[in-house]
Amino acid sequence: MAILEVDGLSHRFSDGAVGIEDIQLTVREGGFTVLAGPNGSGKSTFLRHLNGLLTPTSGDVRVQGVSVREDPRRARQLVGMVFQDADSQIVGETVYDDVAFGPENLMLDRQEIHQRVMGALVALGMSDMAGQRTHLLSGGEKRRLAIAGILAMGSEVIVLDEPFSNLDYPGVRQVLAAILDLHARGRTILLTTHDLEKAIAHADRLLLMEKGRIVADGPPDAVLSKTEPLGVRRPCAVRWGRPVESWLS
């Protein structure tokens, strides 16, 4: 079943620059999609339409059949978004407070909030960090905290913008393991990257963007050969004609 339906989506900035142009896409529930493209190709602009942070110039996005334009609040709850800069999306002083931010905004009662926060922290393996101060966390922990924060809102689709940037090797592994775990529990994953190496072994679909358009779409094996003319480096293994290995093995 399609959880996200994007129909003829275009966005033009107020200065006239084209952000994205005529994007046509459906994402099935439970999929793991990687969206790749060079910087400035419109990846982030596209993602921000999925939960109504940006309003399209034309076209429409539907989440579980309901237009984002009609109910942006519902879209924001269902489509959780983890931004590239982990530091600037932390709101709470402690880990617990930060995860509670979303559920508090949904005006749930205290007990429900507590259950959701603890549930999300357990899912991300952070339940023993609940009282910790957020600015003392490592890069990988901050990114996991951001994921916990949207998980507690009950998001079905988890959108991650460059989730591996600025992370060291253990950080990448932590975050990747968390994403795979959520995927295994049935969440739909959509992540952007310009570094295919780290996630492509687990994806079932690869999209390539260039100049605001989706220029390739299909199973990773089929699309990988087309990446380099578009400014995205092919994983090493593919160059040597071998299958891409997971960073977790």
């Binding site: 900035f13 107020s14 200065d15 620059a17 952000g19 910087n39 400035g40 419109g42 982030s44 602009t45 921000r48 109504g52 942070l53 940006l54 309003t55 590239q84």
Partner: peptide, 9 residues
Amino acid sequence: MNPSPIHDS
């Protein structure tokens, strides 16, 4: 590059 102004929020 980040998308400039998110003028709708």
